[in-house]
Design a protein around this nucleic acid. Sequence first.
DNA 1: CGTTGTCAAGTAACA
DNA 2: TGTTACTTGACAACG
Length: 320
Amino acid sequence: MLVRLGYVAMSMSLQNASPSQTMTHSQFIKIPDREAAIRKLERIAKSNLKNCLRLLRHNVANDIEFFRLTSKIIPLANHEDVKDWNYIRPLAEELSEVKEFLLAHPKMRVDFHPDHFVVLNGEDTDVLKSSLKTLGMHRKLLMGMGIPPEHRCVLHVGGVYNDKEKALEQFIHNWGLIPESIQRLIMLENDDTSFHVEDVLYLCEKLGIPLVFDIHHHLANHENKDWTLYWERILNTWKHSALPPKIHISSPRSEKEFKAHAEFIEPSLLLDFFHSIKGSVEQVDCMIEAKRKDEALFKLVHDLEKEASIEWVNKAAFTL
DNA sequence: CGTTGTCAAGTAACA
DNA sequence: TGTTACTTGACAACG
């Protein structure tokens, strides 16, 4: 079984390489010349994309083939005040540079985790509409980068609204209202407070959505702590995907702040997990969610180096 | 130059 | 009913 390690959004080792510089709405409206303000948004977005490419180069240099892009590349992209702004056209050059790079490195897996304002299971149609708009932006970015958009956006189920059963059924209802091109983007992840892996499996199996298993969330929120009870079903949700299953791993910051992410990853948790699913699948991509980003990945690899049960295929992937 | 408060958006917990 | 955390960085304002 091959395990590739990845990390999230930004690097602690590259200087001045933020892919998520921004302009807030209040800054935007303070600029009297609206055209100038929009050009400034465009300059920021271009710089963010250039830095995404720098991050991808950094990843290749370190054998890292799995990476989550930030969802903050284009500031205010879905804001009401700039709804006439075609934010993709001015980014054509930067997007095609990323596209060329990814074409030259076809093993690189890149995806998004749109933030928690994207909610698909509410009764409020305005919330659904703005969520679809935000997902549309993600899709346009993926298309611009030449990435097949299938299964590139991981989301949580959404809100409980005091009735979890009803909230799950509302997800199914809303799913029918979502264009197929957007449906295909989506993966669903178990969360740490509301929808545990059994809930998410119910939706994923019914609707044909791949399930991203988050170990840390599972430890915080479960019916049954033993994930091996669910693992075969989780794998099955990936049966029709062109991509290998992916999981998330993070360590609790402390006993008291259990749900918060720690700076680094506890290697024993990762080893336990992969030993318990050993042989069940050819490849799993494992997203490291730690405050220290790529440094946490490097430290994890270092910590695992003396581990005899695994064999390194490069600086960021191993087999067992 | 270092520190503090704010940011477009949703939900839930808590006062 | 209103405030804050979530996860969290970026940036402006302030000292």
